[in-house]
Design a protein around this nucleic acid. Sequence first.
RNA 1: GCCCAGGUGGCGGAACUGGUAUACGCUACAGACUUAAAAUCUGUCGCCCGCAAGGGAUUGAGGGUUCGAUUCCCUCCCUGGGCACCA
Length: 990
Amino acid sequence: MNSYNPAKLEPKWQKVWQSKKIFAARENANKQKKYVLVEFPYPSGAGLHMGHLRPYVAGDVYSRYLRMRGFEVMYPIGWDAFGLPAENYAIKMGVHPSITTKKNVANAKKQMLSWGLSFDWAREINTTDPEYYKWTQWLFLQFYKKGLAYEATGLINWCPKDKTGLANEEVVDGRCERCGTEVVQKELRQWYLKITAYAEKLLAGLGQLPEWPEAVKKSQENWIGKSVGAEISFEVISAGTDKAKTNFLILHGRNGSSSSHAFPWLRKSLEAKGYKVQVPDLPNAGEPNDLEQADYVAKNCKIDENTVIVGHSFGGTVALRLLEKGVRVKKVFLLCTPFSGKFLDNKIRKSVTEACKKGFDFKRIKANASAFGLLYDTTDYVVPMQDGESFSEKLGAQLVKIKGNEPHLSGAQEPEVLGKILPSLKVFTTRPDTIYGATYMVVAPEHPVIADNQNNIENFKEVKKYVEAAKKKKEMERSAEGKAKTGVQLKGLKAVNPATGQEIPVWVADYVLWGYGTGAIMAVPAHDQRDFEFAAKYQLPVQCVVEPVENPEQELEDIRQGKKCYAGQGKVVNSDVFDGLSTAEAVGKMGEAFGRLTTQYKLRDWVFSRQRYWGEPIPLIHCEDCGVVPVPDKDLPVKLPPVKKYEPTGTGESPLAAIKKWVKTTCPKCKQVAWRETNTMPQWAGSSWYWLRYADPKNKSKFADLKKLKYWQPVDVYFGGMEHTTLHLLYSRFWNLFLYDQGLVTEKEPYKKRQPHGIVLAADGEKMSKSRGNVVDPQVIVKKHGADTLRMYEMFLGPHELMVSWNDQGVVGVRRFLDRVWQWAEELSENTKPQNTSPKAEKLLHRLVKKVGEDIEAFRFNTAISAFMEFHKEIKAEPISLGAAQSFLKLLYPFAPHLSEELYQRLGGKKMLQQEAWPEFNAALLVDNETELVVQVNGKVRGKLIVGAGEEESAVKSKALELPAVKQALVQDSVKRVIYIKGRLINLVI
RNA sequence: GCCCAGGUGGCGGAACUGGUAUACGCUACAGACUUAAAAUCUGUCGCCCGCAAGGGAUUGAGGGUUCGAUUCCCUCCCUGGGCACCA
């Protein structure tokens, strides 16, 4: 008899399986498909660890099981190989990351093969392979072409150690998710993916994923952070003087007049607020001349340094000519003013185009006004948005895109315009129903209203000091201080509560975040805990406008008097015509009355560029004339050039920027000299679509063939870790939803079921780490006990989704079990006399078939393994037929494939186990005809009875009453009630 | 603070839909085999009282529903994870 020698037989079967390609997946129209996915690893120098093993083995057990159940199973694997470790190694040792990667991949693959994983290696992919990242780049360009990839300069999270920008999702507790270095804010030009455009779809999609764990869905929901409320503008005035001095000059456009468009309404609205307004009728409005009109205005209107010019369309051109002439004003608003002289409707407007062609002296213009406002209509069909962008660049002013009541902002009323031209603070609130209780306003330290009003803020020095201190505070410190709120009043500024008309103070405080909503709030101390604390500290007034409906009288009095904050729902009071409404009704009504209803998300756009070498180059070209131009499909991939130094510059430029020869290229549009984008993509890029590539990994003309995608999509089960919930899992859903909208994939949601797994801790209950010296190397276990033991113990440790502690001593339990199975089967194989399975063994086997099948489908691997052990203990001395023993091996196969395969052959199996069918169970055999029944008196166990399965209550009762223990218990009382559960128990109640 | 898991022997954990709590494995102890040890096999093994037969309490704590609760409900405590001054 041979003894069990996994070191010998495991490599043998691994070779056979590979050579016979029994794990290859094909598009087979006659079979139902199953797509089992595990997160592909980063091939690190340290090799794969226990954390990788857990999901991979789970996926393997499941895949092998499904194949035996007759499904066409795809279980693919690949390498997420861009990333910092290889790059950092390159910096240190000068070895190209691709070499390190290749070496590490070879090693990890060896490990995977040694674990007996049934991957389809023909579909292996590698994100660093140009044939792969060609399509990552191509997909990026699809985003770009749809306006979902954009370049912007802004404060971003910057890791000083890795010297690169990070996405919001990569910052954990103010530290770099990868290296733990404290993240700083840095002003940089970056590429963004507009994931916010998909916030609603990403949220709604969660509702269509019943097989996802609640925890994962909740977490994504939190991260997206939707809140419904209203945006409301509060007019801002500077104390006393300013309002009287400011005056408005409104200039109409071509074919306009003082009585056309929204001009009469605007005049009335402004005058009602106490401003002086001039709206001249300009000469030759039909075919206007900008210079002539500017002269006319200069002669006929009163203009001083407190004048705000509002120029609509061509009126804006006239306004700029006025400044060129040397007229000094306070501010100029350009409303849909043309720049290029080209129009969206392609009509000819000769006078306008000619005026544009003259160009502008922006230096002079900028010198003659202290501020510019650019208001452009998103529904305009005449003046392109591009014109607004051009002005924005030339004037250094922010372009504000609004949606007018009529296109080209030509409605009879344009409230959005009014809101913008009056100095105002916009707030977002989820409680517009409490607006009558807004007794002060707070802006974030970064809010531009502070810099804009430098001259109007009396205590500007103090404010500036506060703002600078706040900016220095790291995120960490802000939260470490807890809820202690600080702030400074902007003295000299007042806001007007649009509901009450009252003037209220404006404060700056860092409890208001620049990154959320509008960076400004209306503070309602009576009904918001944070505002209440702040008001208490700085003695600001508290005005109760909501009363709870059900609270006891005592508390109600405190709330009414503003002594207590009440943030709940209730009845609206002290709110004029809205009194008596429920807060729920009032949210909508008051939101619409004083602003507009809108929705906010916590989700931020995804910072998509990294200033590092080892990533996919962003396939864009910067041309002086054509702007940003995508690299044509035929020129993809943009390959990483060889470099001498991998070190990031640290200035915010990627190491690629130093490769002059590579950077310099020609513009695909105009063939002039142009420059390549030197940023690379984040590591998340390659994994945002990899599961699609598996369906068609060798395709040279497409990222994946739609027919093949249709067969394989969606992923049926995706095994992976909790740590990717708001990273990879969110990002890849975003890419998939986008591709779905482009008709490039067939499913809205990529993963039908998500199966998370608990992390594997060391024996000491700590995380495995080199520094703690508690790492268990899977290869050591393979060497000592074999892969089958490793796999089974890993599964046996505990429920797949819970965290478990590896215990080296525990491994032997599984090893002993496999040893016993081996002995048992060997003895059977040597027994030449055929025998019949005993009824007991037969019954237990059928139970095992049912149990193991159910457990695998529910990913309860640990209890399936217990069942094997129990079964084996029970039957090892029973007579058993060859067929029954083979069935047992079929069940064991997904867990311990090598041992099962070997023994199956020795017991006369003809095919590979993977090609055999999963055993069926006979339901009739599962029923017991005699059962052990528990006899209880008042719920306490007093004895046991063996009775027939169908036995009636009366018969069981009389048998039960005969039991001595029952008799003893019944000495003094009589049975009042009998509860009889067939096959379970009889309970005598006395 | 909010949301989501979870809390069962010395340890990892099991228990279907409310029906014998502690399956399976580890550890420990005893025995067999051995010159001896390892390996293997057999047995014992949650707690308290008891020589034993037997009895009692017990699934984080307290309360409730029920003939019966690890399981359902309420309050609280603890551990892990997520979000966190999100207006």
